[in-house]
Each structure stands twice: as C-alpha cells, then as structure tokens.
C-alpha cells in the first residue's frame, strides 16, 4: 500500500521542497505520511495529538524551519527523527505529570512488530539484528525509540534499576552497530 521511494528520490524531493515546490511537497506527503503518522500516533497514543504533530512537523519542513542536510544522514532517518521529536514534544506537554496508563502500560507486541519488518531489505536486516538481542534489551529499544519513553520510565515499566536500562541499551547499541556494519 505504501508508495515507496528510493533514498535518492526522497532526498531530491526534500531538496525541491526547500526550493518551494508544491508538487514535491504533495508527493512527499503521499509517500511518507502513513509511516510518519504511525510514528506520531505511537508516541502520542492520541489521534488528535498525532495529527497535530505531523502537521506541525511537515509545515516546519515546508517553511524551512528545519532542513535536511544530506551530508550527515539519510532522508528517511531525518524525517522520522523530526516527526518523532514533534510528537514527543506534544506528548510531554500534554502529560506534564507523567505518562498516562494508555502510554505507560500499553502492550508491546514485539513478535508482531518483528513480523512486520520483513517488507524491505533494510528493515529485515534490522529485524535480524534485533533478534540477536535478548527480549528485555529488545523491549528497551522499542520503548525508547518507538514509544518515546525515557530511561526512567522504561526502568519503572520493566521493573529494572535505571542503571540496568542504561547499560543494556548501551550494550544493545554496540551489538546492533556490529550486526549492521556493512559487509565490506
């Protein structure tokens, strides 16, 4: 269902958008909105808030409040990081007194998630790398990256000392980096 773009194409779109090209902006929306909305919805657990986050994030791109720098990253990574930041901002502003149960206690179906990661070679590769981690480590990564939870919240949720959460995520990152090292 998702209209996908090669990295180079997406990079070209972002470039055209920075130059004020409406058509390119519309195309970006068509191709990326579903996954970006998914990111915002997961973080905020609220359709209205997710809508707000995605709208704000994309408008910032159009207005060049933020700008993708091809020298230092990939367009996909940057786009998701940007939308995720906006979503986390809004979520934190909404819940100043701590995460509500619908976020804090929601289920994380890791297996279903990993099963979805077979669509593209990149995600399959990351899925394989994630499989090499033990379950709690994997859960920490997902709660942090997808749910936008802080280390403290993850510790509380998993009933682990915060130091353990930090050392595990540190180790997981090292492991992932090795696993994803381009074969050369």
């Amino acid at each position: 269902m998702e209209d996908t773009l090669e990295a180079g194409d997406l990079s070209a779109l972002l470039w055209l958008i920075a130059a004020g090209d409406h058509v390119a902006f519309h195309r970006l929306y068509e191709c990326q909105a579903p996954r970006l909305y998914a990111v915002a919805l997961r973080v905020t657990a609220d359709a209205a808030l997710a809508t707000e986050a995605l709208h704000t994030a994309l408008l910032q791109i159009w207005r060049r409040n933020v700008q993708f720098r091809p020298q230092v990253g990939t367009p996909e990574g940057w786009l998701v990081a940007h939308v995720r930041s906006r979503a986390i901002d809004l979520m934190r502003r909404r819940h100043r007194d701590g995460l509500p149960p619908e976020i804090f206690a929601r289920e994380t179906d890791l297996d279903a998630g990993l099963a979805r990661m077979t669509a593209s070679p990149e995600s399959a590769r990351l899925a394989a790398a994630l499989q090499t981690l033990d379950t709690p480590s994997r859960e920490i990564l997902v709660l942090a990256f997808l749910d936008g939870m802080s280390a403290g919240e993850i510790a509380q949720r998993l009933r682990l000392p915060i130091g353990t959460v930090k050392s595990r995520s540190h180790d997981s990152l090292t492991q992932l980096r090795t696993a994803l090292e381009p074969a050369a």
């Binding site: 269902m1 998702e2 519309h26 929306y29 909105a33 579903p34 996954r35 970006l36 909305y37 998914a38 990111v39 919805l41 997961r42 359709a47 809508t51 995605l54 709208h55 994309l58 720098r69 230092v72 990253g73 990939t74 996909e76 990574g77 940057w78 998701v80 990081a81 279903a112 998630g113 990993l114 979805r116 990661m117 669509a119 593209s120 990149e122 995600s123 590769r125 990351l126 899925a127 994630l130 990564l141 997902v142 990256f145 997808l146 990152l173 992932l176 980096r177 994803l180």
Partner: peptide, 25 residues
C-alpha cells in the same frame, strides 16, 4: 547521529500504519 537515525529508522516498520486523517493534508 545521522548514521544512528538511519540505522534505527527501519524499526518504524514494526508499527501498524493506519491511514492518516485526511484533514492533515
């Protein structure tokens, strides 16, 4: 930082993708 964004971004594929509300566009 850019490299880690690129490494971790495929995790997004774990999420179900409901259609975004049309009002966004």
């Amino acid at each position: 930082i850019g490299a880690w964004q690129a490494r971790l971004v495929p995790m997004v594929a774990m999420l179900p993708q409901p259609a975004p509300p049309p009002e966004i566009w």
